[in-house]
Every structure is written in structure tokens, then in C-alpha cells.
């Protein structure tokens, strides 16, 4: 049998299948992913990403010491980069802004202080999200 005869004797049909309805939902699935990708996200520097995990531990230790000592005035944490990364990942926008303004964070009753560079990065993120500083402060005062 020649190669051509052999190849012509083989089945050309498609033996693979897909889950039911896969192609029906595919376009929406692709477009959702693209739209999601297109939204602005808070991108931190590589350094911040590396230290994010370590920051959890650092924060727990710091918070533990502060809470154990239980002082009457609001505790203050001067942030290291590790803590900044932790907060940036874990706090909501109101709390982030509160931290930038160096006022008490409602969720934990603590004040977090960022460095100027960290503040600029956070404010830039909040601005991209169209979050007004005035509104946040006003809301917090009302609470």
C-alpha cells in the first residue's frame, strides 16, 4: 500500500468531543475575561509582591504586641514596606485612604503610617478608581 492509499484509508472524522454547550458559552467567556483584564488594577512594585506574604507575619506580630499592651490612645504603626504591602492587599479602599490620611482605620481601630512613596502609590490607585478623598473623610466623620 502506498502512503497515499494508506492515508486515504484512515478515518478523517473528529474523535474528540467537548462538554455540552461549551461553544455556546465560549464567546461570552472570552469577552468577560478580556473586559476584566481591561479594568484598571492596583499594580504594586515587584518588591511589594515579594514581601506580601512575609508582611502577614510581620503584621500579626506587631498587632499582637500593640493589642497586648492595650494603651488607651490609638495605637500607631509606622509601616515598613512589608506592612504597606499587607495593607494594600488586605484593606478596602476606605481603610487605605484612612491610612494615607493617618487617621484611625475603622476596621481595626489602629492608625497605619505609610511612607511618602507608599502614599503616592495608594493615592494614585484611588484616583484611578475615581475615589474622592473628601467623600471618604465625610463618610468616616458621619460614622
Amino acid at each position: 500500500m502506498t502512503n497515499e492509499e494508506f492515508i486515504n484509508s484512515l478515518p478523517k472524522g473528529n474523535p474528540f468531543t467537548t462538554p455540552e454547550g461549551y461553544f455556546d458559552n465560549l464567546t461570552n467567556s472570552v469577552m468577560s475575561r478580556i473586559e476584566k483584564e481591561g479594568k484598571p488594577v492596583f499594580r504594586m512594585s515587584h518588591y511589594f509582591r515579594y514581601v506580601a506574604a512575609a508582611s502577614c507575619i510581620a503584621f500579626v506580630v506587631a498587632a499582637g504586641i500593640l493589642l497586648t499592651n492595650h494603651r488607651s490612645n490609638i495605637p500607631v504603626i509606622q509601616t515598613s514596606d512589608e506592612n504597606a504591602a499587607y495593607w494594600a492587599y488586605n484593606l478596602d479602599k476606605t481603610a487605605l485612604m484612612a491610612a494615607v490620611l493617618e487617621i484611625e482605620i475603622p476596621e481595626i481601630g489602629m492608625e497605619i503610617r505609610y511612607t511618602d512613596e507608599q502614599n503616592r502609590e495608594i493615592i494614585s490607585f484611588l484616583e484611578e478608581q475615581n475615589i474622592s478623598i473628601e467623600n471618604i473623610v465625610q463618610n468616616m466623620n458621619e460614622e
Binding site: 478515518p11 468531543t17 467537548t18 462538554p19
Partner: peptide, 9 residues
Amino acid sequence: YFSGDQIQL
């Protein structure tokens, strides 16, 4: 998700 016969396999 493979439904082919023996030759296709």
C-alpha cells in the same frame, strides 16, 4: 471527551 473508535484511537 474522546468518542472515537479503535482506529481513530
